[in-house]
Simulated assay, not measured.
Amino acid sequence: MDRLKAMGAFVRAVELGSLSAVAREMSTTQPTVSKLVAWLERDIGARLLERSSQRVLPTEEGARFLANAKRVLEEYEEAVAEVASGVREPRGLVRISAPVALGELRLGALMLEILSDLPHLQVELLLEDRFVDPVEERVDLTIRIGGVLPADLVARQLAVWPRYLVASPDYVRRRGRPRRPEDLAAHDYLRYAGRSDEEVRLTCADDSLVVNLPSRYRVNSAIALLNAVHSGAGIALQPCWMVDGALREGTLVRVLPRWTGPAQTAHLVYAPRRRLPARVQVVMERLLASIATW
């Protein structure tokens, strides 16, 4: 029996809480996973999992064994990666989770650049606006914009992006340009769906205020919101990385350019480990270098 494979099945069973989930992840059957864990229990002479119809939980011995099993699996992967990196460029699959808009507008192009530079690398870019736990979902790197950062994961700051009030030139011609924040109440303000309040906090060099801006149009897609601004539907706060190009080209204009909205902060989140595999390390370095300039 493959001891490393059995240890991997046990670790994932604890992390996912289900032998069936491990079986789906390993593209095998639940009885096969159960046999792997049972063999491991016989091999070390202790019961590791408490099984029920709903989920599996580690026994006291299993909880103690879990940390050591994770370390052994990580050390094996690191050893393989170290040998590989010494004889050839990084290779293998790197799984990255990111928000939809960031992936479609920016990350996709960056991933293609990385693949062009490193022909032995593979990238799986998973675009979802929900937070993807890198441990539970076997993702190497998660890009998180805003939100609470889990205390048990490593989080490295990627960038802090100011948010600008923007509109299309056509909208400004039709509706005029607001001169002060209070003027926004007379305009069509577009916002991301999900918040029930209508307050918008704006800041300039020497002042900060909150304006109440009702919105007739809310949408839970950052790209759809940007498209609405481009179409001339109204004014919206947008992060600089989404609109800098359009502002340079003149297809969008800033209104109240002295004022900005709450900044977006992006972090790179990943599971703690002593050493990242070379394939993950090289992608992380490219992300850190590139995203900070957006």
Rank of each mutant, 00 (worst) to 15 (best):
M1G: 14
L4S: 07
G8C: 05
A9L: 07
G17N: 13
L19N: 02
R24A: 12
M26P: 08
S34I: 04
G45S: 04
G45A: 02
R47S: 04
S53Y: 08
S53H: 14
Q54S: 13
T59S: 06
E60S: 10
L66S: 00
L66N: 00
A67K: 02
E74G: 03
Y76V: 14
R88S: 12
P90H: 05
G92C: 00
A101I: 03
L105K: 15
L105C: 12
L107M: 08
A109G: 10
E113V: 08
H120N: 11
L126K: 05
L127Q: 05
D129E: 02
R130I: 13
F131M: 05
P134L: 14
E137P: 01
D140E: 11
L141Q: 01
I145L: 13
G146D: 09
V148C: 06
V148T: 11
P150S: 03
R163C: 00
L165G: 07
A167Y: 00
D170T: 15
L184D: 08
A185H: 04
A186I: 00
A186F: 01
D188W: 06
D188H: 05
G194C: 10
R195L: 07
L202T: 03
L209W: 06
R216T: 14
I223F: 12
L226Y: 13
P239C: 03
W241N: 10
V243M: 11
D244H: 06
R248M: 09
G250R: 13
V253H: 03
V255T: 01
P257N: 09
P257L: 15
G261A: 00
Q264P: 08
A266E: 06
V269K: 12
Y270D: 13
P277L: 05
A278C: 07
T293L: 01
W294N: 09
